[in-house]
Write a protein that binds this DNA or RNA. Structure first.
Length: 276
DNA sequence: AGCCAGGCCCATT
DNA sequence: AATGGGCATGGC
């Protein structure tokens, strides 16, 4: 049961678990303070508290109702994927995951940073970007605007520890700021077209594009393939050629897990990483 | 002290 | 279209 008023959202629902939502790898601007989860998105902050078996979300309730995808029926989604291979155990841990509806610009930038990187380090880089280019909101910093990110030179990102992604960030921010790339377009495109379009951005390859499609554009028929999923692939297909390319893995895995493949991927990814 | 991480770019073939 | 080397940084 989910109830929303002007200030808060009250959730008593087995398909919502803030720990799983935050730590499954889809979002980086979160932290646990005392027993509460704090999640930031653009210039907003949500605080999720647990009070006698019920979760309460404080923040902009209209915005976060949508952000946490609380209008979607995850019982149906879980039902749809529950008979797929290796999902059963993953759901015990992660059935409270909800796929966030994140801002496209923030998602593009964050997942460019994610490439060949570690989650704790990704979080640190993003935090430094917000502190240096975002707005001070008192107890947190907003995510920078497109214009702000486009206004600084690439060595600004180098100094923030972005490594070789410095140029990806400045080029991509400028392309979007200059109107050479339209972040609204992928909402209207089919998954394959949107993916090709996203990959015209510097620093966005097949894996990062899949993450953006899933976490910002509600395209669920994707399957981000990283080093963890590669290991999973060979558990599913033990006789596969060891040199199987990620592209082949993606299409095999989307076929196998169906129209909610991307959501299934999150249950699996969370489960793999939680079990070290 | 190395190996590796939510991979991508680019040159070569 | 497919392959492979190089790559900044810092967790682990």
């Amino acid at each position: 049961m989910i109830i929303k008023d002007n200030q808060k959202i009250y959730i008593r629902d087995e398909y919502f678990d803030p720990t799983a939502v935050c730590t499954c790898g889809q979002v980086f601007r979160y932290k646990k303070v005392d027993n509460n989860w704090i999640v930031c998105s653009l210039d907003k902050k949500a605080t999720i508290k647990e009070l006698d078996g019920q979760f309460v979300i404080e923040g902009d309730s209209d915005y976060f109702y949508d952000y946490f995808d609380l209008g979607n029926d995850y019982e149906k989604i879980v039902e749809e994927v529950s008979d797929k291979p290796l999902i059963g155990d993953a759901l015990k841990l992660g059935k409270g995951i909800r796929i966030l509806k994140q801002d496209p610009f923030e998602t593009v930038i964050e997942f460019i940073i994610s490439a060949n990187n570690l989650i704790p380090r990704i979080k640190g880089i993003i935090e430094r970007i917000c502190i240096n280019l975002g707005e001070n909101k008192g107890d947190y910093y907003s995510f920078p605007t497109i214009e702000k990110m486009a206004s600084v030179a690439k060595d600004f990102y180098t100094k923030l520890g972005c490594g070789y992604r410095d140029e990806y960030l400045s080029k991509t921010a400028r392309a979007i700021c200059d109107g050479k790339f339209d972040l609204g377009l992928p909402f209207k495109q089919d998954t394959e077209t949107a993916k090709k379009y996203l990959m015209t951005l510097t620093g966005v390859g097949p894996k990062v594009a899949d993450c953006i499609l899933l976490f910002a554009y509600q395209k669920y028929d994707v399957f981000p393939v990283d080093t963890w999923i590669k290991k999973l692939y060979f558990r599913l297909f033990p006789s596969a050629n060891p040199k199987t390319q990620p592209k082949t893995m993606r299409s095999d895995l989307v076929s196998l897990y169906g129209k909610y493949a991307g959501i299934a991927q999150q249950y699996l990814f969370y489960s793999i990483r939680e079990n070290k």
